[in-house]
Design a binder for these strands. Structure first.
Lengths: 214, 214
DNA sequence: AGGACAAAAATTGGATACAATTCAGAAAAA
DNA sequence: TTTTTCTGAATTGTATCCAATTTTTGTCCT
């Protein structure tokens, strides 16, 4: 496996590689991941493979069975519903706690991102929109000092294919309207309202994804 | 390291051992966990140690820094507050989803556990109470088909010292009264009410623990 | 045929030894 | 005193081996 400057340890590269393979259905749900196979296929030894599988287990992408090794988890419609419901709960409380500690700089930056997303919609640039959308959500949570909940949220967003081909132009418009509603709640210094909008925003996205899932 | 029938792999034993050592402050917050040291101390090789540390990382007890290894995470008062708030959210939604799928057998079993806890209170048997309390909470969640949220909840309860010397007799009495209120909500088939009671129950416990924490 | 059961192969869990890499601090040079 | 270099400790990764367990295969019996 070639060295890259992006990851500081081989294990991280291996993790990223296997994760992508799972997303791209190279490894199908239920399939067993044989350590020796992966090791020789990626040209590394079994040690980084095993650590990588442990990391993927934490992300919920694989499952370890004692003496049987790692298996790819299948994602069902119910999993999507659960995932987005949990994300709405977690991200909701995060932004509520974050609000009061957001600086004025961050406020104006959030507005800029929303404007950029409006441009992305006009340009039909889905990739750029998704990227800006992530930036927006992360920045909105920046004021929250709780670490565990932020870690969980980021795991949920990283650990699953956010970039499914679902972000249609119409969806993006509604989505960005909700982003603007969040900024309004921020102006009004109403953390409960902010939380509710965020919760609804995420659940709505989840339902959309779940619908698409069959 | 002696073999035990409780764990099917050595890695699980090692995980449990290190976890307990962290709880008992044998390894203090911020302390680096040197793999070779642990390996020779426990009489095992590095491989199960590293996997164990990955598991503990997932539980939030240690932190990995690239090329620096694992460090014990320090637990602050704010961490306790966060932990129990999140647990209340997660366990709340779990029991709400669980309720309708609980069998009559499980209902009566829950009642029995509550009775046992009443006896534990009378006997001043804290250890037995804590055990029964865990059983109660797990059983109450049994009907929920969502897996991830249950995994998270169990991680939160396992990953932190539930058995701190805080379960005083008076606390236990209040706690078990709330358990009875949960059964009542179950009788009334009111999932929202059940959820609220559970949420309040956990947050109250968390506040108690947080108070004790300095 | 078709199922139960035992042998064989594959795979994981784990041990050991060794090489490579990184990081931090001490020592040496400017 | 400041900068550079060296060095040692620790992590990270490789290669190889072994035991225990699971899965597969193949055979035997009804």
């Amino acid at each position: 496996m070639k060295q890259s400057t992006e990851f500081s340890t081989l294990q991280e590269q291996v993790t990223a590689t296997i994760r992508e393979a799972i997303f791209k259905q190279v490894f199908k749900p239920g399939e067993r991941l044989i350590q020796d196979e992966l090791a020789s296929k990626l040209g590394v030894s079994r040690m980084p493979i095993r650590e990588a599988l442990r990391c993927l287990e934490r992300e919920g992408l694989v499952e370890f069975l004692p003496h049987k090794g790692a298996q790819v988890i299948g994602i069902t419609k119910e999993d999507i519903e659960e995932l987005y419901y949990l994300r709405s709960l977690l991200e909701g409380v995060t932004v509520q706690k974050s609000m009061y500690f957001l600086t004025e700089t961050e406020r104006t930056q959030l507005e800029k991102i929303v404007e950029k997303m409006d441009m992305d919609i006009a340009d039909r640039n889905v990739d750029s929109y998704v990227k800006h959308n992530q930036d927006f959500h992360i920045l909105l949570q920046h004021g929250c000092s709780w670490k565990k909940v932020k870690m969980l949220t980021s795991q949920f967003t990283e650990g699953y294919p956010v970039y499914v081909p679902s972000m249609l132009p119409k969806t993006m418009t509604i989505s960005n309207m909700e982003h603007k509603a969040m900024l309004k709640a921020l102006d009004e210094k109403d953390p409960i309202k902010l939380r509710q909008i965020v919760e609804h925003h995420i659940i709505r996205t989840g339902n959309l994804l779940a619908q698409l899932f069959e």
